[in-house]
Write a protein that binds this DNA or RNA. Structure first.
Length: 272
DNA sequence: CTTCAGGGACCGG
DNA sequence: CCGGTCCCTGAA
């Protein structure tokens, strides 16, 4: 399948550090959550999609349905975000799905991106089914059923440290409370009951696992960006909630894109 | 070798 | 609300 997607960069989108379900393999990117998928953008324009996946499914995964020009116009409120927007041309907010985002961001606590991806890969190879598409061998994203049924002690081998009980708590919650099939409001309340899911991780799950584009999670890079450029907007102390509410109030319903652009811009340029 | 930060959260006070 | 603590890894 060939998809025409103007103003889109597969490379920028998937190497941003926002996704935990895509893995690079040469000029290709692979993913196996429900089914094996393989994509590439060799000519820098058209998107080649392999595997038993519909265009609707791949578009959802990669955020291709977002009206990016309208979004960029709406959040382009000052020179800082304007630079970040232009620097990040082609980026989309992915939708990894509820469980992958939950596992990924619980594993992200006090960790860097390569380390998180390595942990997930190790877990995929241990728990996941093998898949294949166009000659590429894939391991399925570790399911909460497998993790829960394997028991907490089995997680020891991954050296997750204090995150071990967080991961098991998350898997248990998805199994026992069927979080994947709840309504939106109930989902957030249930997610917060998981050990290892606080406000920041929840905001990440909302943005990258539920495609709630108004979400504005604040990690260390975003905190530095906000402190440098937007401190005048914050009322009161620099608490997580004060900063986030100020930024969402400022950027509005597409704050998540502003967050992704600022993260990309400050992190890649190492602006501290 | 030691020190410290990395897409924070939890617990006790 | 606040400060200390938690596990592991890799860079400095």
């Amino acid at each position: 399948m060939l998809l025409k997607v103007p103003n889109f960069s597969l490379e920028k989108t998937l190497s941003l550090g926002q996704t935990f379900v895509w893995d690079r393999d040469g000029n290709y990117w692979t993913s196996y959550v429900d089914k094996p998928v393989l994509v590439s953008q060799i000519d820098g324009k058209n998107l080649e999609v392999f595997g038993n996946v519909t265009s609707a499914e791949i578009s959802k995964m990669l955020g291709l349905n977002d009206r990016i020009d309208d979004i960029n116009a709406e959040i382009d409120k000052d020179s800082t975000i304007d630079r970040a927007i232009n620097f990040s041309t082609g980026v989309r907010i992915v939708d990894d799905g509820l469980w992958p985002a939950t596992l990924g961001f619980v594993l992200s606590i006090q960790s860097n991106v390569p380390l998180i991806l390595r942990r997930i890969k190790a877990m995929s190879m241990f728990y996941g089914d093998k898949g294949e598409t166009n000659g590429f061998r894939l391991y399925k994203f570790p399911s909460y059923e497998r993790i829960f049924n394997g028991g907490e002690e089995a997680l020891q081998r991954f050296k997750l440290g204090f995150r071990k009980e967080f991961v098991f708590s998350a898997a248990r919650a998805f199994v026992e409370r069927d979080i994947a099939n709840l309504g939106k409001k109930d989902v957030e309340a249930e997610l917060l009951k998981i050990k290892g899911v606080g406000e920041k991780v929840l905001d990440c799950i909302r943005l990258y696992g539920m495609h709630e584009l108004s979400s504005f999670p604040i990690d260390v890079w975003i905190r530095r960006a906000v402190t440098r450029e937007y401190s005048h907007l914050i009322k009161g102390k620099d608490t997580y909630r004060n900063m986030r509410d100020a930024m969402v109030g400022y950027f509005g319903r597409y704050s998540g894109y502003a967050q992704a652009y600022l993260y990309n811009y400050f992190r890649l340029n190492k602006i501290k």
